[in-house]
Computed example of a mutant assay.
Amino acid sequence: MNNQATLPLSVATTTIADKPQSVWQLRWRRLSRNRVAMLGGLVLILLALFAAGAPLYERLMGVNVNDTNLLNRFAPPSAQHILGTDEAGRDVMARLMYGGRISLLVGLLGAISAAMVGTLIGLIAGYYRGRTESVLMRVTDGVISLPILPLLIVFAAIDLQKLGFSEEFVRSSAANFYRIVFIIALVEWTTVARLVRASTLSLMTREFVLAARTQGASARHILSLHILPNTTSPIIVALSLAVGQIILLESTLSFLGLGIQPPTPSWGNMLNNAQELISRAPELAFYPGFLIFITVIAVNFLGDGLQDAFDPRAESH
């Protein structure tokens, strides 16, 4: 007789319910229970869909993001222009959607670039220790101590032609985009570097790393196969929290006229264009400002949820 068939229903149910879960499943379960974090994630998905739908919106409404019509300036919302037009007669909704593409991409690519730089520096400092660690950490402390906004303004004002780039590239919208991502990556890597260094120092004393070193494994092998996979938690948390700050930095630079340059829209330069029209058309400042606010809040909510979900102290709960 099959003994399993004679088990009471309650025992069988308990056995199924107690099936071991992987670490990632446990983290997802904790994250999914955090309603605020899930709401933040949902808002970010909706914002991404909003930005991705810009070409479809243009086709459906028969508008173009850069088409100007001085005879239709400050038009109220209508069937063709859902949010009206701006000071140049351009469709506000289309510019918000395309501006979202730029702002969200800058935030994401800037955070990923900064995380890559910080991860590399943190791994090297934590693994090699000694003078290498001392030099890298003093550089990190120096970057942290610098005033971020003045530094970004100085970097943004550098003439790319004097660095050897062609005039055609310098005048293109891609040049402004990549320059902003590069500048932000130069100053936002420090948090990831410190977190990865701390994780690496802890992992260097673990048995599996000591065994690999005893067997003569190379530094590259140990860092790539044993240490880096185990530092993903702090990297993901730091990356998610950095996105909101980077979006704010890009918006600040664009607001000051040093970021994404018109006619390419971003939420920051839309705010810059609207500052002189605040008394006549306050909605032109409200729309991009509200989207920046919502994006940063949603990213911070999701980042806080990821931080709780990846907290090693909760692994056993």
Results as ranks from 00 to 15, higher is better:
R194Q: 08
R30E: 04
L26E: 13
V181T: 00
F290L: 12
P229W: 12
P262K: 10
I297A: 11
T15E: 15
S134E: 15
H317C: 13
I222R: 08
R313E: 11
G303W: 01
G53S: 14
S113F: 09
G216D: 10
S113C: 14
P147M: 11
G303A: 05
A309M: 06
M97V: 07
N300K: 03
P20K: 10
L83I: 09
L109T: 12
I45G: 08
I246M: 10
I82K: 01
L302Q: 03
L149H: 09
L284D: 00
V143M: 11
S266N: 08
L104A: 04
L163F: 10
S224C: 12
G289C: 02
G289S: 05
D159S: 12
L203D: 00
P288N: 09
V23I: 15
P312Y: 10
V154G: 06
I144M: 15
S316V: 14
V243C: 09
Y127C: 02
L277C: 07
F310A: 04
G89N: 05
Q4E: 15
L60S: 12
A75F: 07
F290A: 10
N269S: 10
L83A: 05
L120V: 12
T232D: 08
I247E: 01
L96G: 02
G41A: 03
Y127D: 05
V237M: 06
D304H: 07
G53F: 10
I82D: 02
L46M: 14
Y178D: 04
R280C: 07
